[in-house]
Write a protein that binds this DNA or RNA. Structure first.
Length: 427
RNA sequence: GUGGGUGUAGCUCAAUGGUUAGAGCACUGGGUUGUGGCCCCAGAGGCUGCCGGUUCGAGUCCGGUCACUCACCCCA
């Protein structure tokens, strides 16, 4: 029989690596909530039209990377390739703009794009996504980037650079686009085939081209940042001043273009040189027209997404942190002791002490070895003699000392030592 | 979607077309009738990714396929 494997580009996250994910998620929640963001969970599936209208019909994401399919009634649906569209949809649908207290949201979860997988690029991948609505002030742009910076810093991330740019607005970008297109038309014969195509579909993208010849042509091209209107220019200046005030290092990159149509004014990317071609760890920007375009009120917005796989790949290249939680191992000898030990383990767990035992009757040596591998702090030894006397041996694995406890009070002794964990804190 | 590279034990990797495919780490048992890490001994673990072809004979050569990987493309 042929083995069934996971779908190409979609990966299992195994127990041995899950602590990285948990740590990243916990840190993200901590920081996002400190900044006033609240979690929102939206469906993985949306009407295809939502993505087409928000991300842009002619973007690569929508044109060739979407998982799209008709459901049983023939309605066209799509697996979400990013989170912003869904969050904006929910924001409008539930009139969340009417609640002045909640206008910042975050989401953590899987996204889907049908691309050829490679390192740092998968068909199901995970993002931490943050969106803030209703504030057009450049202070917020800076705050969003500062939050991202702080998050990476708290995780101990090094060697990443924040690139920022302004894409202008609906007032000034069309004019620039025309300017660029006529420049490219004049130099068309010097451009690579890809850029020939981009010239018509998405002219700004030519700046991303890696072909040397195209880049040298572009040296003479008009620069967007110098063509934006005075309002956009003032906005961008304020963003930079604010970032400086927050001591957040950045690099103005006038050639940075982003692949989604809805961005305007401030855009940014966190870039690394350690992941090969997949160099963006996170990115985002302002999207003031989007809420209105999707049928909501004219409310500005800004947001970003972090690629969790890429982030974790980078963290793993740094120092590996292995966390060992306090743990009790119960070693039993003889059938009667084993049965009593089983109850003891459950009592410990019920009291919030992580505990384990050997379920099969192995030698004490073997049980001690296992306890050592698990890096427990204490082993409770329960043999025939101890059971008959109502006692246990408690071995401190670090100091290698051992003392006798009453069987009845050993649970409380372990609780006292390890502290009681409350799985569901109230508050 | 296009092009290159690689698939052998749980992991990292050996094996000129020729016996029964090996090593280190990890795992299990023992050395110590009931005490961990180090050491010693032993054991278990493989349709060599899958399918087909060439050959007396294929882990090795050829084709296909699947997966991973690198680059293009694109982005997180």
């Amino acid at each position: 029989m042929r083995l069934i494997q996971a779908v190409r580009g979609m990966n299992d996250i195994l127990p041995r690596e899950i602590s990285w994910w948990q740590r990243v998620e916990a840190t993200a929640r901590e920081i996002l909530e400190d900044f006033g963001y609240r979690e929102i969970r939206t469906p993985l599936v949306e009407k295809l039209e939502l993505f087409a209208r928000s991300i842009g019909e002619s973007t690569d994401i929508v044109e060739k990377e979407m998982y799209a399919f008709p459901d049983r009634k023939g309605e066209l649906l799509g697996l979400r390739p990013e989170a912003t569209a869904s969050i904006v949809r929910a924001f409008i649908q539930h009139n969340l703009h009417a609640d002045p207290l909640v206008n910042k949201f975050y989401a953590i979860g899987p996204m889907f794009r049908h691309e050829r997988p490679q390192k740092g690029r998968y068909r199901q991948f995970h993002q931490i996504d943050a969106e803030a609505f209703g504030i057009d002030d450049p202070m917020l742009d800076a705050e969003v980037m500062y939050m991202l910076h702080l998050f990476l810093q708290r995780l101990g991330m090094e060697g990443v650079v924040l690139h920022i740019n302004s894409l202008g607005c609906t007032e000034c970008r069309p004019a620039y686009r025309g300017l660029l297109q006529s420049f490219l038309a004049d130099h068309a014969e010097a451009l690579c085939p890809d850029c020939q195509r981009r010239r018509h579909t998405n002219p700004l993208r030519v700046f991303d081209c890696k072909v040397d010849r195209c880049q040298s042509v572009l040296q003479e091209a008009p620069v967007l940042l110098q063509s934006v209107c005075s309002a956009c220019s003032a906005h961008f200046d304020r963003v930079q001043n604010c970032l400086q005030g927050l001591k957040t290092a950045f690099l103005v990159n006038p050639r940075m273009v982003r692949g989604l149509d809805y961005y305007m004014r401030t855009t940014f990317e966190v870039i690394t040189d350690q992941l090969g071609a997949q160099n963006a760890v996170g990115g985002g920007g302002r999207y003031n027209g989007l809420v209105k375009d999707l049928g909501g009120p004219d409310i500005p917005g800004i947001g970003f997404a972090i690629g969790m796989e890429r982030l974790i790949l980078l963290l793993q290249q740094g120092s590996g942190i292995s966390s060992v939680s306090p743990h009790v191992f119960v070693a039993a000898l003889g059938e009667a002791s084993r049965r009593r030990a089983f109850l003891l383990v459950q009592e410990l767990r019920k009291e919030g002490v992580a505990a384990d035992m050997e379920y099969e009757g192995r030698s004490l040596k073997s049980q001690m070895r296992r306890a050592d591998k698990l890096a427990v702090s204490h082993v409770v030894i329960l043999g025939e003699d101890e059971l008959n006397r109502g006692e246990v041996q408690v071995r401190d694995m670090i100091s290698k000392t051992q003392e006798v406890h009453a069987l009845e009070s050993v649970v409380q002794a372990m609780v006292k030592f390890h502290g009681k964990r409350h799985p569901c804190p109230v508050g």
